[in-house]
Write a protein that binds this DNA or RNA. Structure first.
Lengths: 350, 350
DNA sequence: TTGAAAGCGTTACCAA
DNA sequence: TTGGTAACGCTTTCAA
């Protein structure tokens, strides 16, 4: 049979240029050139092993001759597989999320998926409207940051009936799968670490997002309970940066905090605090010990805070991607709550 | 007229459950409930002012009653407006790109667009395959990083016939629009700055991506020409981090570089270099002046490098978004080459 | 191994 | 202001 023309073409000509012409090459054009049916071209692309080698050859020549480009919108619509994964983060300006997403993208690209990005700016309302927007693209899966979402968000996600991975935290009641670590445990572990080290003057410079607040709360409670210690506290905004770290420590020092140890809720804050301490001529770590959190790549052993709390963004990003892929492919997911843990990395005191 | 049923429904019933059922609510379902035609529902959503208030009311009730969710894949296919913008960056793990994209997303979201993210890992081949992949989603526009792309990439982009914004650099021959600053000028300006300050012992710790290499080359040439100065050079990888900054400066110092000034090709490298200098007990900036580049937010006036070269990622991200939107909406674009400039920010020497 | 027909959920085009 | 009809470009389903 000869696919020189199809009904669309006939109509197109018949109606003059009034039909919606796209100008771009379609599966049909390739099919005509290769003298096969459109469906065979589709198979040649998606399941080449189900097409005879000779046919395949003809088709791939036709493809390169025409410069054909599959249209994934059409493909997604017809197959209800968009090959799109949505990722919702507070902000890419925070390097911890940027890096997680970077690993997440890497892993997904290897499996033919692309990432649709959304930023909430740490707002649950914004997250809600973002979820609604991205779901209208019919993603095959979605990554969320954190485990706290509005009622509506949860309803939308459950209604969408796609795999959901929550990251950066743990919860006994995940929407679907959760990958992260316990912020309570970090607060407690750092507090106990400092108590064991014998510190009695302890401060905290903390960001004010949900997760940082939980770490701070447990940190403070643990110190109060086990060491009967009152903690000097300085909260900064959700968005943290170098300057806020300086200002945070300055605030503590200006309000009577002398020598001791300070827990900063991110590496960025820790580095700022460090600069402030150095500017004031404090000896690190003898007069002031600084603990960061996050272990930004390769920083752990090089920046002169006493200690850093480390967790692995690569593992989180990669495993989040793998969990979604497994769910999408209907593989049995054994764990729906993955604790990647953390470790307190002690530096040699120079 | 009563839209209680349409031909699809009839067939669906007729054929039993053998038709492809999606389970999800469609425009048709809403239309039936509101007793209007599907196209009217579509209008109610996209051009509400073209629909009678009473009809609108009935439709919006039907929408909320059914929990209807527009399907943007279908919409994009039918209207050839995907409302998707692709963003291709080397890596989100580099904060300069993460922040640019963050501003880019913000601006686009305000106009109802979403961002499809792709990372090239600084590879032109990877960029090429990524461009091919994202174009199959029929984005309405695309942001690229840099101005150096493979022949095939350029062909693909031109063939796609969508607005293209190149960022982070300038070129007299952009594919479409380019927004950035001149890396040649930076290399020259920093060299001249140091010469004017009277420095005669000068080093550079540079990343090895294309743009950094250009800055380094012009920097070195300018110093050689105007000051007859030989520069101590230390190149690190494309991906830069704190540790590499330390190692880069260590390399210079271990190879005979004494006091003077060092130009680091990013803030991250500068901070690492700073740590190394401090570890060696060098006085900053009296014995060693360090110049960073990028001005990561709020760092400029707080971290104790002598100077930083600043450019504005917010402007770059936002204007890139606006240029694309303008092109998409067919507005006349007056400039196709936007130089956002840079400035050398001198710190008070504490 | 290949194909015909129908459909995915939406919007463009014209007509009323 | 509203609607009928066809189409967007692909894949599913079933049949050969």
């Amino acid at each position: 049979m000869n696919y020189t023309e199809n009904s669309n073409d006939a109509k197109r000509r018949e109606l003059g240029s009034s039909t919606r012409a796209t100008g771009s090459v379609t599966l049909n054009d390739v099919a005509k050139l290769a003298d096969v049916s459109p469906i065979t071209v589709s198979r040649a692309i998606n399941q080449p092993n189900k097409v005879a080698p000779k046919t395949l050859e003809r088709i791939s020549q036709a493809i390169s001759r025409t410069g054909y480009f599959p249209n994934q919108l059409a493909s997604g619509l017809a197959s209800r597989r968009s090959h799109l994964i949505a990722a919702i983060v507070p902000t890419m300006a925070n390097s911890v999320h940027a890096e997680t997403i970077s690993f997440f993208c890497d892993r997904l690209r290897d499996s033919g998926y692309q990432v649709l990005l959304g930023e909430t700016g740490y707002s649950e309302d914004q997250e809600e409207s973002l979820i609604a927007t991205v779901l209208s693209r019919r993603p095959d899966g979605i990554l969320l940051t954190g485990t706290s979402h509005s009622k509506t968000s949860r309803r939308l996600l459950i209604g969408a009936d796609i795999p959901v991975v929550e990251t950066w935290d743990l919860t006994p009641t995940p929407i679907d799968v959760v990958i992260g670590f316990s912020h309570q445990h970090i607060g407690q572990a750092v507090a106990e670490y400092l108590l064991n080290k014998g510190y009695r003057h302890i401060g905290i410079v903390s960001a004010s997002d949900n997760r940082a607040k939980i770490r701070a709360r447990v940190f403070i409670e643990t110190l109060a309970r086990h060491g009967n210690i009152e903690v000097a506290v300085s909260f900064v905004s959700e968005l943290t940066n170098f300057r806020l770290g300086r200002e945070g420590l300055a605030h503590l020092l200006d309000n009577g905090f002398g020598e001791g140890a300070v827990f900063c809720s991110s590496d960025t804050l820790a580095q700022g605090a460090l600069a402030e301490a150095q500017a004031r001529g404090l000896l690190i770590p003898d007069q002031l010990a600084i603990i960061g959190l996050g272990d930004q790549p390769y920083a752990a052993h090089t920046y002169p805070a006493l200690t850093t709390v480390r967790f692995d963004r690569e593992i989180m990003g990669r495993r989040a991607a793998e969990a979604l892929l497994a769910r999408i492919n209907g593989e049995p997911v054994t764990e729906n709550c993955i604790d990647i843990g953390f470790s307190i990395l002690e530096r040699e005191t120079t």
